[in-house]
Amino acid sequence: MSDSTVSEAVAQPRTAAGVLFFDEGGRVLLVKPTYKRGWEIPGGYLHPGETPSQGAAREVEEELGIAPPIGRLLVADWAPHPVEGDKLLFVFDGGRLAPEQFEAITLDGVEIGEYAFHELDQVDTLLIPRLAHRVRAAFDARADSATAYLEYGTPLS
């Protein structure tokens, strides 16, 4: 782009990152926010200048009171919201929580009021559809040692 080119509008998505943690039985950890209905994965919006993995780690520490290592990227999803606009959402692998990490979980009591481990077949009823699609894609990516790219929660073929 040269100096004489008229600048054009570019996407400025809201960016968020979450983490999937598992127990010894392969169930996924979900959290229940206090400020809205339903369940979520631990995570949230990034702060300015923060990378997705840094934001995911910060959110986990704020919400759960633990600071386990954040693993590899499982999913990147371009998922615009009809009200909130463009969104770019990342899901990282948190791996299996060790017993001492599980025992150290301390909910913040402000944003998160409850947590529980759930089977994969429960995510469709517990999560909003677009997040359920993302979590299912993350499960598949984890099993395949891959990273999935989604648009609107759907893998590109």
Rank of each mutant, 00 (worst) to 15 (best):
H81K: 07
V83M: 11
G95K: 02
F90P: 00
E100L: 09
G85S: 07
V123Q: 02
D93V: 07
L89Y: 04
I105A: 05
F117W: 08
I112V: 15
R72G: 10
H118L: 09
F90L: 03
V123N: 07
D77V: 03
Q101N: 09
D108K: 07
A76S: 14
E111H: 14
G95D: 05
V91R: 01
P99M: 09
L89G: 01
L74Y: 07
F90N: 06
D124N: 14
G95W: 07
F92T: 06
D86I: 01
G94C: 05
G95L: 09
Q101M: 12
E111T: 14
E111F: 10
P80K: 10
E100Y: 10
D93M: 06
F117K: 10
Q101E: 15
A116Q: 15
V75A: 02
V110K: 13
T106Y: 00
T125Y: 09
G113D: 05
T106N: 07
G94N: 06
V91N: 00
G85M: 08
G94Q: 03
F92L: 08
I112T: 13
A104W: 04
D77R: 06
Q122N: 09
K87S: 13
H81V: 05
Y115R: 06
G94M: 08
L120C: 04
E119R: 15
A76Y: 07
A116F: 02
D77L: 05
E111C: 00
D93Y: 06
F92R: 06
D86H: 13
L107H: 04
V91H: 00
V83F: 11
L120H: 10
T125A: 15
A116E: 15
A104V: 03
F102I: 10
G94A: 03
E119I: 00
Y115C: 13
A79H: 10
E114G: 04
I105Q: 01
A116N: 07
E111Q: 12
D93K: 03
A98G: 06
L97I: 09
G113F: 02
A98F: 08
D121R: 12
D121E: 13
H118K: 14
P80V: 08
D77T: 09
L120N: 07
E84Y: 14
L97A: 06
L107I: 11
L88Y: 13
K87I: 04
A116T: 14
K87F: 08
F102Y: 13
D86Y: 11
Y115F: 15
E103I: 02
D86T: 08
T106A: 12
P80Q: 12
D86E: 15
Y115T: 10
V123G: 01
E111M: 11
F90T: 02
L107A: 03
T125I: 05
K87D: 08
E103S: 15
T125V: 12
R96V: 15
A76N: 08
H81F: 01
F92V: 03
W78S: 14
G85L: 09
V91W: 01
G95S: 05
A116V: 13
P99T: 11
A76V: 15
V91F: 01
V110Q: 11
V91C: 09
Y115I: 07
P82L: 05
L120G: 10
Y115D: 02
